[in-house]
Design a protein around this nucleic acid. Structure first.
Lengths: 124, 124
DNA sequence: AAAACTGTAACAATTATTATTACAATATAA
DNA sequence: TTATATTGTAATAATAATTGTTACAGTTTT
């Protein structure tokens, strides 16, 4: 997103972005799918295609990016193991932990609302 | 920690706690090691040993537990892949992301300061 | 028609997490 | 003083999650 903000009129290929991240183009395209759902970026297929920002970087908050990257999961998650339903604590722990996990997500989101992609980009 | 707070005078074995969590005692003991470093709990070896709270639950904040469980890592972490040092963004991205990651940690800690183990326990 | 892209599925490889086994050290109790 | 029940910790195995790769259909430009 920093690269897209810095060169905002260019179409960037997943291959070029993957090179900066030192990863592979398919992973980039998968992440692009999320960001497109939130209308932060647009993509163009075909020769000379690629992706670019759909909104001005000063209208994109880090929280917007975070929310799309995060998806439906909490940042911190419950154990995969089912706590003992025979235990007074075990049988209610997940219900009570979920409230905490949701608060954690919200506090992250609030803190990321303090910065735009534009201001992040301007540090480079 | 909820179990320890609920039955605060008993010595709880790692085996019993593992049963509630539906995991194994060794994992519990490893986590206990962290919590002991922070002086939240004490443990006793030998027959009739176990662990119990070292402080009153109304003096233990969820942030205290979180900090010990978290260790030195950020909650969200950088990629293991080294970004391209030849890229204007890649060569500085980690430095700039670290500030964001630190802010995220801090916002979680602040939000967890709002609740004590005592109040968490009282929901059960 | 050729070339250079995205999108996506299937699968492989790697890494991280969780579980298990084993046992030394310790403390209690018979 | 011996048997028993515990923590602490290391080593390793098993499982799960993440990341990477290959393949190719569909799209757009030249």
């Amino acid at each position: 997103m920093t690269i897209l903000a810095m060169y905002k009129d260019d179409w960037h290929t997943s291959t070029d972005i993957a090179k900066s991240l030192n990863t592979n183009p398919v992973l980039v395209r998968k992440e692009i799918a999320n960001l497109k759902k939130g209308n932060l970026i647009e993509s163009k297929e075909g020769k000379h295609g690629g992706i670019r920002l759909l909104k001005n970087a000063n209208k994109i908050y880090l929280s917007d990016i975070f929310l799309l990257a995060k998806g439906d999961e909490h940042v911190l998650s419950l154990s995969n193991n089912t706590p003992a339903p025979t235990c007074r604590v075990g049988k209610q722990i997940n219900k009570n932990l979920k409230v905490v996990l949701k608060n954690i997500d919200n506090s992250i989101i609030e803190s990321l609302k303090d910065q735009t992609l534009e201001s992040f980009k301007n540090q480079f």
